[in-house]
Computed example of a mutant assay.
Amino acid sequence: MNRKYKIACALTVLTLALAGCASKGAKVEEAKPNPLPKLVQAKTLVPVFSTNVASASEADPLRLRLDVDNGVIFVINPNGEVEAYRGKQRLWQKKVSKQGLSSGVEAADGLVVVGSSKGQLYALDQATGEEKWSAQLSGAILAPSLIHAGRVISIANDGTVYAHEAATGKQAWTYNLPNVQFSLRGQAAPVPLDARNVLIASANAYIYALDAVSGAPKMQRRVAVTEGRSDIQRLIDIDGDPAVAGQFVVTTSYQGQVTVLDLVSQQVVWSEDASSIQRPEVQGNGVFVAQTDGKITAYEITTGSKLWENDQLLNRQLSNPVMLGNVLVVGDMDGVLHLLNPATGEIVGRSKTSGEVRTLRVIDGQLYAATRKGAMSVWQNR
């Protein structure tokens, strides 16, 4: 049985659903999300662009992120289509897969790359949407690929890392991550470490540095531990993308820790207990983490000291936090985009999209949001 499907129920309501998996038949009282706090003179974001695609399953934690390259926005539709927009003008729309798509978009070097739950990897021409090449992987593709150093790096959910030549689609190498018996249904995307190497995070709480061109391993390091007694309690996946900030790599793990690793010494600088499946945000000396219980915590990057913690959004199923200009933005289950003061953690404003916010990105000073209901939108800070 494919390891990513063994406890798919675990991400329905995260901790509560995990409790249901662990004790079948036991009644679990669902924690209610905190009501929205009242705000005085609330800030809002300025909408720039929006479109709607098909919704994703509530039980499937797909993060169908948008991407942008050369001023063109590329949007994925879970029903199998990819669309390209310049401003509000749609340049093209292509049906890529009759079986649907399951990964977010990666756009670079003239390519648009997407993947399916059947392990099909597609590379399209940015200008026309025409397929340039495709490849078959050994498992579902749940995270966006990475185009880096002339390679398209992708991860199948059976733990196999693939590299294909960006120009031709020819397979260059594979790397097998250690098999994990139980894991959440999700996968961190590969991220660039430097001009040559990439970082891969896995369900066994390790991160791996691989040479993008040859596939040669350069580093492996455990960045989280667990003290759980059962298989469910010992889940410690790194599902949020690692954040590279100078000489540091910041990771978060489910039922684990937020950890800062020094790339020079390859030693852990500090580690603090925190459960998160989202990518941490790093800005200046601050590390910002949205935890699975809805707390947002800020740490000092070199010492791990807690700068502040906000618990006003408990049980609101938060997205990854991102910095947009001078505000920290995080989305929630109702499509609310919360604006926080990064120095104090105070909520200073909000805007609204439609559906549970799954991914946030900031590119060239604009916020790109994707929700479970298929709302894809771009925002600016006032």
Rank of each mutant, 00 (worst) to 15 (best):
K95V: 13
Q283V: 03
I236F: 06
P178F: 10
R358I: 03
L339R: 02
K38S: 00
K43L: 09
S202Q: 05
I347C: 03
D231I: 15
G71N: 03
L360C: 02
G119W: 00
L36N: 02
G284T: 11
A243R: 06
K218P: 00
L340R: 09
G325F: 07
G71R: 02
V289A: 09
G87S: 07
V269G: 08
G110W: 06
Y175N: 09
N381M: 13
E83M: 15
G25P: 07
A188V: 09
W92D: 00
I147A: 01
A172Y: 13
N310W: 05
A274Q: 10
D60V: 15
L328K: 06
A166N: 03
I7L: 12
P61T: 09
I347K: 01
G110H: 02
I232V: 14
R350Q: 13
V75T: 12
A10G: 13
P178M: 02
S377A: 14
V53N: 11
I238G: 05
K38Q: 05
V289F: 05
A224D: 03
V258R: 11
R350P: 06
E29C: 08
V53M: 03
L39D: 02
I73M: 12
V264I: 14
P33L: 03
Q99L: 09
F74M: 10
G355V: 04
S145Q: 05
E346R: 04
A167C: 04
D158P: 10
A84I: 09
F288E: 09
S97H: 02
E346H: 00
D334P: 01
G294I: 04
T297V: 13
L193K: 04
A10W: 08
K295Q: 03
L124K: 01
A375I: 08
Q120W: 13
V327G: 04
N179A: 15
Y162T: 06
S351P: 01
R63V: 08
A59S: 14
A107C: 03
A203R: 11
D241R: 01
V289S: 02
D125Y: 00
E83T: 14
I236S: 12
D273K: 15
V82W: 00
Q171F: 07
K170I: 13
G119Q: 07
L318E: 01
V249F: 03
E227T: 14
V264C: 04
S202A: 10
V72M: 11
H338Q: 12
D239N: 13
S305M: 10
V68G: 06
V213A: 14
A127V: 04
N52D: 12
I147F: 01
G115W: 11
L360E: 02
L313P: 00
V114C: 05
R316D: 06
I236Q: 09
F49R: 07
S103H: 01
M323L: 12
T353I: 07
V72I: 11
L91N: 07
T174N: 00
G335H: 00
T128W: 12
G331I: 07
V327F: 07
A156K: 09
Q380H: 08
